[in-house]
Design a protein around this nucleic acid. Structure first.
Length: 616
RNA sequence: GGCUCCGUAGCUUAAUGGAUAGAGCAUCUGACUACGGAUCAGAAGGUUAGAGGUUCGAGUCCUCUCGGAGUCACCA
């Protein structure tokens, strides 16, 4: 049992014995003792002061005496200002270290027989992935790993937005101006190739719009429809969508293409498939570089008509209602939302219709009782409406829905904008961090007898480790500012800092092998130093961190834990000799401790999708 | 305007309602003839946006104000 729960239970027992009052063990607050005080764990006594009818320090004294007497793991205690500081016996720590180092699954929980589905990435197929997708992908991947670690069977999915106006723009653009070019003939990565035609379409469309604004019709429209004081520029900016639908030639062509697609016109379908396949090939490369994968792909072209049966269902159950024009609505005004449309008067779907249908389909596909949607926080409202609606429909999985909402990644100048060319491309960024890692590596370790192939592999791990850690260490909810001018750091609170502590340990482990060091004397070591104790306490905390990260869907907790553990190891390394320790017992103990730290670091970083290099 | 989220050192950030708000970057000092310096130690940097309140105790909870973002589409 975890020592923290042992203490909590013992305190509850003590309160019952001493003061004849029942308290919940989980409610007992046990903290790590701050560095300036003696002890390993501290119980906050203030909550029991009223029960004990004694001054805080007096109550703490009584509790401390009771605990020391009744809990064998507690060696001693002291009281400071209402805090009960407990010292844990070296025997306990010895036992803990031995069991942790022997358990390859330390920190992981056994299978719980439950399924959870994590949806992430979910790109559009008209352009390549960018920095925003990277944050989404890393959050989704690590969230999946963490849920897996606490016992769930995880199904990783993405819904590919492969249809609609956007991809039709790319298709039309290529058809009109592409002259039969291909990614192969141009040497451009295939998803970028498709994205380039989208950009060209937007450019041509803009030119058409600007020309149209000079026309007689446009002039008189502006004069007649402008709001008081509105400038010409603002007016036409606002009018753009309407123009595209009502006046644009390109717009008409795109709509025609979309209609053909919906009618399964063979030529259009062939073109659509060709361009999407190009995009998928490009995405696969990027996903591969990031080291992520999916168990199942959903395509919007298969799901966009789903949800009609739910509409009927909702009407029958009286959750939805029909307006005079035939459109279907749900009234969520008592939940603080408005009436939301579910189905248009002409019977066609809206965004939420599809999501309702997809949710039910997934439940039937996999039987998962929990769904995690990794989607940016601009869709918070949508998911509130979606979840509330599913709940009212009485869907069996409705209570297991979670929107893992994260803040957008912004540049120092604000949001990334395609039109201004400020979008940070995923592939460019990955290449950039690997280049930085190569530039910075200049130490001696990586050159000794390491093959060129392994060297490249290690550089890849370091570069990606830096990028991934940089993104994942920030709490998901926070908006993130990314400055492409300042390269991703490799020193300080970074992925490579953590990897480096692992590399140090790896060096020790290899030497153990080489020299055949016997680690059994470790158990005879009793004079545990503060640097060693810090590591033990941190290792001990690992399972709790994973559990909390899973409960809160927050990988940044694991990232910050990794940094904390690595920092403590670096200090340990600096302050104490391992191989040159004074006694064989100390040497064996420190090597064992190092091994445990290495195992936990590797395990925890794997939860973040970060690999450990052997050397760097 | 309604609703939601955010505001912590120059910058990036951490902190179950608990002890002196903890780190990193940048700045300045120090520590390697090697268990690997992508490291370590130290200095300096804070009215936790502001004002009230609850509490033995508030960065954290409540109210108001200020600042920023998102959203409130028969778009996805």
């Amino acid at each position: 049992m975890n020592i923290v729960s042992t203490i909590q239970n013992a305190v509850a027992q003590a309160v019952a014995q001493l003061y004849n009052e029942t308290i919940e063990p989980a409610g007992v607050l046990v903290n790590n003792t701050p560095p300036d005080f003696t002890g390993d764990y501290s119980v906050v006594v203030f909550p029991f002061v009223k029960i004990a009818k004694k001054a805080p320090d007096a109550a703490a004294q009584e509790l401390g005496t009771y605990l020391t007497l009744h809990v064998p793991e507690i060696k001693d205690f002291n009281v400071v200002k209402g805090f009960l500081n407990l010292e844990i016996s070296p025997v306990y720590w010895q036992g803990f270290l031995a069991s942790a180092v022997a358990n390859p699954h330390y920190g992981r929980l056994p299978r719980n027989g439950k399924k959870v589905m994590v949806e992430y990435s979910s790109p559009n197929t008209n352009k390549p992935l960018h920095l925003g997708h990277i944050r989404n992908i890393l959050l989704g991947w690590s969230c999946a790993q963490i849920l897996e670690a606490v016992g769930y069977e995880v199904v990783k999915v993405q819904i590919v937005n492969d249809r609609g106006v956007a991809i039709c723009k790319s298709m039309l653009s290529w058809k009109k101006w592409g002259e039969g070019k291909t990614p192969e003939s141009t040497g451009i990565k295939s998803d970028h190739f498709v994205g380039d035609w989208y950009v060209l379409f937007e450019q041509k469309s803009r030119e058409e719009y600007e020309a149209w604004q000079q026309s007689e019709a446009a002039r008189s429209l502006f004069e007649n429809k402008k709001k008081p004081g509105q400038s010409e520029k603002d007016f036409f900016k606002e009018y753009k969508n309407k123009w595209f639908n009502d006046h644009s030639n390109l717009g008409a062509e795109v709509r025609e293409m979309l209609l053909k697609w919906e009618a399964h016109d063979p030529d259009t379908m062939a073109l659509w498939k060709k361009m999407n396949d190009w995009v998928y090939a490009g995405f696969d490369k990027t996903y591969g570089d990031l080291g992520v994968a999916f168990d199942k792909l959903y395509y919007e072209s298969d799901t966009y008509l789903l949800g009609k049966d739910i509409v009927e269902d909702g009407l029958t159950k009286g959750v939805f209602f029909k307006k005079e024009d035939g459109s279907v609505w749900v009234d969520l005004s008592d939940a603080g939302h408005d009436q939301k449309i579910i189905l248009r008067a002409d019977g066609t779907s809206v965004y939420i219709t599809q999501d309702l249908g997809t949710a039910r389909m997934r439940y039937h596909d996999f039987g998962a009782e929990r769904f995690v949607y990794v989607v940016a926080d601009e869709q918070n409202y949508h998911f509130q409406v979606l979840f509330e609606t599913l709940k009212r429909l009485g869907e069996p999985y409705a209570d297991g829905l979670h929107h893992l909402s994260y803040g957008l990644v912004e540049l120092p100048t604000g949001r990334m904008k395609t039109r201004e060319g400020t979008v940070v491309d995923a592939d460019d960024l990955i290449a950039e961090v690997m280049r930085i890692a190569a530039d910075q590596s200049g130490g001696r370790g990586e050159s000794e007898g390491v093959s060129e192939e392994n060297k490249q592999e290690n550089l890849r791990k370091v570069g990606l480790g830096a990028l991934k850690f940089f993104i994942i260490k920030v709490h998901p909810k926070k908006k993130m500012i990314f400055n492409p001018e300042e390269s991703v750091d490799l020193q300080g609170q970074t992925g490579p800092y953590i990897q480096y502590s692992y590399v140090r340990i790896n060096g020790l482990m290899q030497r153990i092998e080489r020299e055949g060091i016997d680690l059994t004397p470790a158990s005879k070591y009793t004079d545990i130093q503060s640097q060693e104790k810090d590591l033990l306490v941190a290792l001990h905390e690992y399972p709790l961190v994973v559990a909390k990260a899973a409960a809160e869907y927050d990988p940044s907790l694991v990232a910050n834990y990794c940094y904390d553990l690595a920092k403590k190891y670096h200090r340990f390394w600096h302050d104490l000799s391992v191989f040159n320790a004074d006694t064989p017992e100390a040497r064996a103990f420190r090597l064992t401790l190092s091994r445990a730290v290495g195992q936990v670091l590797q395990s925890a970083m794997r939860l973040l999708g970060i690999e450990m290099p052997e050397r760097m």
